Structures are given as C-alpha cells and as structure tokens.
Simulated assay, not measured.
Amino acid sequence: MTQGLSRPGYKAFVDGAPEIYAGLSALTRAVDASGLEKGLTELVKLRVSQINACAFCLKFHLGLARKSGVPQDKLDLLPAWADAGIFSEREQAALAYAEALTLLDGDSASDELWEGLRSQFSEEEAVHLTVTIAAINAWNRIGIGLRFAPPA
C-alpha cells in the first residue's frame, strides 16, 4: 500500500484559491441577503452535509445553526426529519428538495417535488434555496476531496 500525499487544508485552500473561495462565499452572502431564514438554510446545509458525510461542513454549520436559534431537538432529529413530527411544512419541503438535489437520480427535480416546494416558498425563495443546496454540495465535495479537518 502506498502512502498518500498530503492534501491542502482549509487555510491552504482559502489562501491558494482565493477567487474560488470568494465565489462560493458570495453565493452564501447572496442567499443570506435574500431574507431566506438563516435557521432554515442551516438545517438544509446540515442535512446535505450529513448525506455527503462531510465532517468539516457538519461541524461548521452546527455552530451556525445553534447561533441562528435552531432548537437542539431539530438538530438531534434532522437525520430522521420526515418522521420526527417537529419540522414545519416549510422545513419539510426544503429538506425534501435538498435531499433530492443531493441524491440525484433520474427524477430528482420532479414536478411534484417542485410543486411541494412552491406550496411553501415563493419562486424567488425557491431559487435561493436551490443555490443554497448547490453551494453546500460544492463545499462538501471540496471538503471531502481535500479532507478538511473539522474546525476546532
């Protein structure tokens, strides 16, 4: 078995690819500025990061979710959100959409899923939610690919 080469850590990534970091960060700032609830977007980021098993993003977004006032019960039950009985219809629609766009298959963006999302979100909000899901999936793939250590 060969020894693997070391990979750049988070700081090395930020320092070595500042334009990429700035671009991904700009997506987050744009969603935050849109008025979409921070607690909701953090739940979505956490669920996507759970699916993708990105330890760095999980640790990072757990802290932000707590600062945003997401109740601990929701953080504890997020992996089983569909059966937990504590998530609002709006949160459930967002989480279902996030899972579908993360676990892409032939029918991920079905009309039924979009209709369910739109029953809870305006078109503008749905666009911002879509960007949130795309951005966290990108961050997860970067964090996993470069094996970022979870923040202290």
Rank of each mutant, 00 (worst) to 15 (best):
Phe13Lys: 04
Gly39Gln: 09
Ser68Tyr: 00
Asp83Cys: 06
Val44Ala: 05
Leu78Met: 01
Val70Ser: 03
Gln50Leu: 12
Leu40Phe: 00
Thr130Tyr: 03
Gly9Tyr: 01
Arg118Tyr: 11
Asn52Arg: 06
Trp81Ala: 03
Glu115Leu: 13
Leu78Asp: 02
Ala30Gln: 14
Arg47Thr: 02
Gly116Asn: 06
Arg29Met: 11
Lys59Cys: 00
Gly16Tyr: 04
Asp32Cys: 12
Phe148Met: 13
Leu62Gln: 06
Leu104Asp: 12
Pro151Tyr: 01
Phe121His: 09
Ser122Ala: 10
Gly69Asn: 04
Ala33Trp: 10
Ala135Leu: 13
Asp15Thr: 10
Glu19Cys: 04
Val44Thr: 00
Leu103Lys: 01
Leu58His: 04
Ala12His: 01
Leu95Asp: 03
Leu113Ser: 09
Lys67Leu: 06
Leu36Cys: 04
Asn137Asp: 10
Ala138Gly: 08
Thr130Val: 06
Ala138Pro: 10
Phe87Tyr: 07
Ser119Trp: 11
Val48Arg: 01
Phe148Glu: 03
Ser34Phe: 04
Pro79Asp: 05
Ala17Asp: 12
Arg29Ile: 02
Tyr97Glu: 11
Leu129Tyr: 02
Pro150Met: 06
Gln72Trp: 02
Ala93Asn: 09
Ala33Ser: 11
Leu24Gly: 12
Val44Lys: 03
Cys54His: 04
Arg118Lys: 14
Asp73His: 11
Met1Gln: 14
Ala22Arg: 11
Phe13Met: 13
Leu46Glu: 00
Lys45Val: 04
Lys38Phe: 11
Lys38Ala: 15
Pro71Glu: 11
Ala80Val: 01
Gly16Thr: 08
Leu103Ala: 05
Gly116Phe: 11
Lys59Phe: 00
Asn137Thr: 01
Leu146Asp: 05
Phe87Cys: 08
Ala134Asp: 06
Arg66Gln: 05
Leu77Val: 02
Gly39Met: 05
Ser122Leu: 04
Ala109Lys: 13
Ala134Leu: 07
Asp107Ser: 14
Ala65Asn: 05
Glu99Val: 05
Gly4Cys: 09
Gly106Asp: 15
Asp105Trp: 09
Gln120Ser: 11
Ala149Gly: 11
Leu104Pro: 07
Leu101Ala: 13
Ala98Asn: 12
Phe13Ser: 14
Asp32Lys: 12
Glu37Val: 06
Ser49Ile: 00
Pro79Leu: 01
Ile136Leu: 12
Gly145Asp: 07
Trp81Asp: 01
Arg47His: 00
Lys38Thr: 15
Val48Asp: 07
Trp114Ala: 15
Asp111Val: 14
Ala100Arg: 09
Ser88Lys: 07
Leu36Pro: 02
Ala53Cys: 15
Gln72Arg: 05
Gln50Ala: 07
Ser49Ala: 01
Pro8Cys: 08
Ala152His: 14
Val14Tyr: 15
Ala55Cys: 12
Thr41Met: 02
His128Gln: 10
Val14Glu: 15
Gln50His: 07
Ala30Gly: 12
Gly116Leu: 02
Leu95Ser: 09
Lys59Tyr: 06
Ala12Asp: 05
Leu64Ser: 10
Ser49Gln: 05
Gln72Ser: 04
Leu77Lys: 14
Val127Glu: 04
Leu24Trp: 03
Cys57Thr: 03
Leu36Gly: 03
Asp15Lys: 10
Glu125Trp: 03
Leu77Asp: 04
Arg147Phe: 09
Val131Phe: 08
Leu64Trp: 14
Asn52Pro: 03
Leu78Gln: 07
